[in-house]
């Protein structure tokens, strides 16, 4: 017996949940008004309602279709490392300025496929940092701290 939980079923359920959640939130928080004089809640309620209905349609379709071969694997390693690198940038930038945070971001992200030895990772990060500083602060002239407190 096949499990009914395919990727499509999960997607459909997520969409239904999203549609219903937005509908309830919009109805609870924003004035619906009337069709004669629509309030800020009317359009979101309608759209999320339709979204939930489409979700039900997707669910029916997915259940009837049966399990499709799951071809795409979730790329956990790049997913975590790339997003992590961006998060590290967002956290360190206000403290250290552009240069150190870009450097760190490149180093962390380059572990996603880990094709370079550490020495080359450092070299790549240095080059990318120089490009960032030269292009954005010098050529485009955006005022950003390059190294906080120093430059």
């Amino acid at each position: 017996m096949r499990s009914i939980w395919s990727k499509d079923v999960a997607t459909a359920v997520l969409i239904i949940v999203l549609g219903v959640a937005v509908l309830l939130y919009a109805q609870g928080h924003y004035k619906f008004g009337s069709f004669r004089s629509p309030g800020p809640g009317l359009f979101p309620v309608l759209v999320s309602g339709v979204l939930a209905v489409v979700g039900v349609g997707l669910l029916i379709q997915a259940l009837m279709q049966g399990t499709a071969p799951e071809d795409v694997r979730f790329a956990w390693r790049p997913f975590i490392l790339i997003l992590g690198a961006i998060a590290v940038f967002a956290v360190t930038y206000p403290v250290t300025g552009v240069a150190p945070s870009v450097f760190l971001m490149v180093i962390i992200s380059s572990y996603s496929d880990n094709k370079l030895p550490l020495k080359n990772k450092v070299l790549l990060a240095s080059i990318v940092t120089v490009i960032a500083v030269v292009l954005f602060t010098m050529i485009l002239g955006v005022r950003l701290p390059v190294i906080a407190g120093v430059w």
Partner: peptide, 26 residues
Amino acid sequence: HLMYPAILMFIVMGVLTTYNDEIQVW
């Protein structure tokens, strides 16, 4: 593998310099 870290830098710096606010990076 030499390009994607640079692409990432362009994305992040592009957003940062547009808004001057790291919230947009999040």
